[in-house]
Write a protein that binds this DNA or RNA. Structure first.
Length: 121
DNA sequence: ACGCTGACATTGT
DNA sequence: AACAATGCCAGCG
């Protein structure tokens, strides 16, 4: 078959999964962030659908939170506590269902700043 | 085809 | 911090 090695998968879902797996332990990323990193700007909801569907154990789903730092699933859901536990085990500070997001001072410095150490502010 | 719904984001109040 | 209005796009009835 005519495969193009070193070329990103054309399947949007595959790229989203790759982007999620790329989030290092101890850090969190927003849905829009993942979408943009997957080359799909504006498709945060697609990321959400992928996460709900692909609850594979190898997938660090717990590192994906809303852009305001809040856990995206309802508190009453069993997954909520699970996510909080996993995050805290990685050293992420979770307060009242919300994590400390890496505060970006300027909107221009997006990815580089966000992929940096999360133990800051 | 149409309208709702949803692990969302952004902007304005 | 919280809420509302829009924009967004894929599944479902």
């Amino acid at each position: 078959m005519v495969e193009h090695p070193q070329l990103p998968p054309s399947d949007p879902v595959a790229r989203i999964l790759a982007a999620i797996r790329a989030v290092p332990a101890g850090q969190v990323a927003g849905y829009g962030h993942i979408a943009r990193r997957a080359g799909l700007p504006g498709r945060a909801r697609l990321v959400a659908r992928v996460l709900r569907e692909h609850h594979a154990p190898s997938l660090p789903w717990h590192r994906i939170v809303r852009s305001d730092g809040a856990i995206a699933i309802p508190r009453t859901s069993p997954g909520f506590d699970e996510q909080v536990r996993r995050l805290q085990r990685e050293g992420v500070v979770v307060i009242n269902g919300r994590v400390r997001m890496p505060a970006v001072d300027s909107p221009d410095t997006l990815d580089a700043a966000l992929w940096g150490p999360a133990s800051r502010r």
